[in-house]
């Protein structure tokens, strides 16, 4: 249970960063931290103590326990998508920096109204 709680604390650190920082790059970094904590949570839930990595070594002996392959598959999909969306946010940050000369989200205020 301690591991789950620590993982959730990592997520909360990310939430705190997204809400309180004013630098666009810091916001992207906080988003990545939130993503990492979600990936780790999924893999933690699928772990079986004493289990092996999900690779078939001996096809006959099926009594060897392996860890759950399904959460790992889903995390593999999600991790690639996370990097793609992050690079999109960073592309937006490049354009905003070229236009305004700053990463401060308070000064990027021409989108208002």
């Amino acid at each position: 249970m301690t591991l789950y709680i620590l993982c959730f604390i990592l997520f909360l650190v990310g939430v705190y960063g997204v809400l309180t920082r004013r630098n666009l790059i810091k916001i992207v970094i906080s988003l990545t931290i939130m993503e990492f904590s979600v990936f780790l949570m999924l893999v933690l839930v699928g772990y079986i103590s004493g289990g092996l990595a999900p690779i078939v070594v001996h096809p006959e002996g099926s009594d060897i326990s392996v860890v759950d392959p399904l959460p790992q598959t889903l995390v593999l999909t999600a991790a690639v998508i996370a990097v793609a969306t992050n690079s999109m946010v960073l592309a937006l940050a490049i354009r905003l920096y070229k236009k305004y000369g700053t990463f401060d989200i308070r000064k990027i205020n021409e989108l208002k109204g």
Binding site: V28, V43, G51, A53, V67, V75, L76, A79, S87
Partner: peptide, 21 residues
């Protein structure tokens, strides 16, 4: 946590993210 595939993919993705940022 016995997820070697995920670890290898994560190394590559993390390096790419660092370089992009």
């Amino acid at each position: 946590l016995k997820a070697p595939e995920l670890a290898l993919v994560q190394i590559v993705l993390e390096t790419v993210t660092l370089i992009i940022i």
